[in-house]
Every structure is written in C-alpha cells, then in structure tokens.
Amino acid sequence: MVDDVVGRNDIVAWRGPDTDPVRSLLHDLREPLAAILLLSETSQGDVRERLVSIQEQASWLAEVVAASLEGAAGDHVADIDARALANEVAGRARMSTTTTIDVEVVGECRVLARPVALARALGCLVDNAVRAAGPAGHVLIWVGSCDDAFHIRVLDDGPGLGRLAPRTSIGLATTRAMVAACRGRFRLAARPDGGAAADIVLQSRSEPDAVAL
C-alpha cells in the first residue's frame, strides 16, 4: 500500500539551479559504468548472464549519450509502457546494489513522454532512494493513475528528508529538467513513517493536450 502523498501540505516542488547538461550526463553515466565494472570483475553467477547484463547497461549508456548529443530531436515523444520502463530502471539499479527494489503497478500504465528523459529522471530518483535506504533497505517504484493524473512514485524507507549527508544536487536537478522535458511535475515529500516519497506527475494519454509535448 502506498501512502497518499499527493496533495499533502508537506509536498513541495523542488527548485534548483539550471542544470549543466555535461555534469548531468556524467552523473547519469556513473551508475551504469559502476555496474559494468562490478559485473566484469565478479566471478559469481553465470558468465552468460553477466554478459547480457553488461550489454543492457552498455545499451542504456549509448541511448543516454545519443539523446544528449541530439537533444529533444533524439528523444521523441512516444506512447510509453511505464510498467516496462519502471522494470528496466529497477533491473539496472539492482545490478549494483543489495537494496530491495520492487515495482508496483496499479491501473493504467501507459503515458506519453520522452522515453530517455523519463528513464533518466526515474533512474536519478531510484539512485537517490537506494542511497537513502541503504544496503538492507527497501525502495518501491509505484506506477499508476491517481487524482486525474499519471504518477510514477519512488518511495524509500531511509532516514527521511534532510537526514542524509548530501552528496550532490545533480540528481535532483537532472530529474527536474528531464520531467520538465516531458511537461510533467516533480514533487518531493517526507513520508509519515519515515523515508522520502518522490513523485513524477505526467499527463495521461487521455488528456487533450498530451500530444503537444
């Protein structure tokens, strides 16, 4: 069960400085590269499975770099299966952490957005949530329609907002920029029982101006 964080008074729209595209790109390349190094150095598991995982990470790196070089023209608006996207992001994140990462989908799971931008935004939020939750913690990616909008939420059971030593603000700045590219909104809140809830709010396919991204 997901806490009803949308509409709470303690939810705030994150504000930050303009995103430096080069630093943002480098930030998003860090985790996939770390996963590739980890997969290439370990002797555990099936070699063929590790090679498939390395290929998946490398393919994602190629997509991010290509979209960054081409800008919006390289990341066209598409009808996205948000369930599949959430599972892909979760799968990549699981390769380099022992944190439990689950995906829950409720109702409609298709949305119009820029695929790479949305995946980068979600990846940044999952990265932050994993760091907050810690190696033995839990992160949930919740996908579904609620309050007449489409939501992708990332919930963690970490210490809560403001209680974790900051690393950089690049991840949140990148999230804000990528969500804006999809004409969405990004909101961050403290969960009542601890941890944080990040909420990406997007236009559903049924909204009249959804195709005008």
Results as ranks from 00 to 15, higher is better:
1 M>D: 13
2 V>D: 07
2 V>S: 12
7 G>E: 09
10 D>N: 15
10 D>L: 12
10 D>E: 15
13 A>Y: 11
14 W>E: 14
15 R>E: 15
15 R>Y: 13
16 G>C: 10
16 G>I: 10
22 V>R: 06
22 V>G: 00
23 R>Q: 15
26 L>N: 11
27 H>E: 11
28 D>N: 08
29 L>R: 03
34 A>F: 10
36 I>T: 01
36 I>E: 03
38 L>T: 09
38 L>H: 10
39 L>M: 02
42 T>Y: 02
43 S>A: 08
45 G>N: 05
45 G>A: 02
50 R>I: 03
51 L>K: 07
57 Q>N: 03
58 A>K: 10
58 A>M: 07
61 L>D: 02
64 V>L: 07
66 A>D: 15
67 A>D: 02
67 A>H: 03
67 A>F: 03
68 S>W: 12
70 E>S: 12
75 D>N: 01
77 V>K: 06
78 A>M: 06
79 D>L: 09
79 D>P: 01
81 D>E: 08
84 A>V: 11
85 L>Q: 06
86 A>M: 01
90 A>V: 05
97 T>L: 00
98 T>Q: 10
101 I>A: 00
102 D>H: 10
102 D>K: 08
103 V>H: 04
103 V>T: 09
104 E>S: 10
108 E>S: 08
109 C>K: 12
110 R>E: 12
118 L>K: 01
120 R>V: 09
125 L>G: 02
131 R>T: 10
132 A>H: 15
138 H>R: 14
138 H>T: 11
142 W>M: 00
149 A>P: 06
149 A>L: 09
149 A>R: 13
151 H>K: 05
152 I>D: 01
164 L>Y: 09
166 P>A: 05
167 R>W: 11
169 S>K: 14
169 S>N: 15
175 T>C: 09
176 R>A: 15
180 A>I: 04
184 G>K: 06
185 R>C: 04
190 A>D: 15
192 P>K: 08
196 A>M: 15
196 A>W: 08
200 I>C: 05
206 S>V: 10
207 E>S: 11
207 E>D: 11
207 E>M: 10
207 E>P: 00
211 V>E: 07
